[in-house]
Simulated scan of single mutants.
Amino acid sequence: MELVICVILAYSSYLIGNSAFNAGLPVKRWAFLGLLVGPVAYPLLNSHKQLAYRKAMGKQGISICL
């Protein structure tokens, strides 16, 4: 059972680190967080990706959806 949990945490760390790299976020920080909490860190990564995108776009990134 412990082996399965360790494999899930390691795989989660790899995937979250890869997603952070693709988004331009700090890889080591997100990979370590993925190793600690596993798949629970993925929604937090998505919110940080969206925040970084909005910060990079500035006022030009604002759009009105009707």
Rank of each mutant, 00 (worst) to 15 (best):
Leu35Asn: 03
Ala23Asn: 01
Lys55Asn: 06
Ile16Ser: 04
Leu9Tyr: 09
Ser47Phe: 02
Pro43Cys: 05
Asn46Cys: 12
Trp30Phe: 04
Ile62Arg: 12
Met1Gly: 15
Leu3Glu: 11
Leu36His: 04
Leu25Ser: 06
Tyr53Gly: 00
Gly61Trp: 07
Gly38Asn: 07
Gly61His: 07
Lys28Gln: 12
Trp30His: 03
Leu45Cys: 06
Val37Ser: 10
Ala52Tyr: 01
Tyr14Glu: 05
Phe21Trp: 14
Tyr53Glu: 11
Ser63Met: 14
Ile64Gly: 06
Leu9Pro: 02
Phe32Tyr: 13
His48Gly: 01
Tyr11Leu: 14
Leu44Met: 12
Leu9Val: 00
Phe21Val: 01
Lys55Glu: 06
Phe21Pro: 00
Tyr14Ser: 07
Leu36Ile: 14
Leu66Gly: 09
His48Tyr: 10
Ala31Gly: 12
Pro43Thr: 05
Leu66Glu: 12
Val7Phe: 10
Pro26Gln: 10
Ser13Glu: 07
Pro26Met: 08
Ile16Asp: 03
Pro26Asp: 13
Gly38Ala: 04
Asn22Pro: 00
Leu51Gln: 11
Trp30Ala: 01
Pro39Thr: 10
Asn46Thr: 06
Leu44Tyr: 12
Pro39His: 09
Ile5Thr: 11
Leu33Asp: 07
Asn18Ile: 08
Lys59Thr: 13
Gly24Val: 11
Ala31Gln: 08
Arg54Asp: 04
Ile16Leu: 13
Pro43Ser: 05
Asn46His: 11
Gly24Met: 05
Tyr11Lys: 05
Ser47His: 05
Ser19Asn: 10
Val27His: 07
Lys55Gln: 09
Ile62Ala: 11
Gly17Met: 04
Met57Val: 06
Tyr11Arg: 08
Lys59Asn: 14
Gly34Gln: 02
Ile64Ser: 10
Ser13Tyr: 01
Ser47Tyr: 06
Cys65Asp: 13
Met57His: 14
Leu66Ala: 12
Cys6Met: 06
Glu2Met: 11
Asn18Ser: 15
Pro39Ser: 10
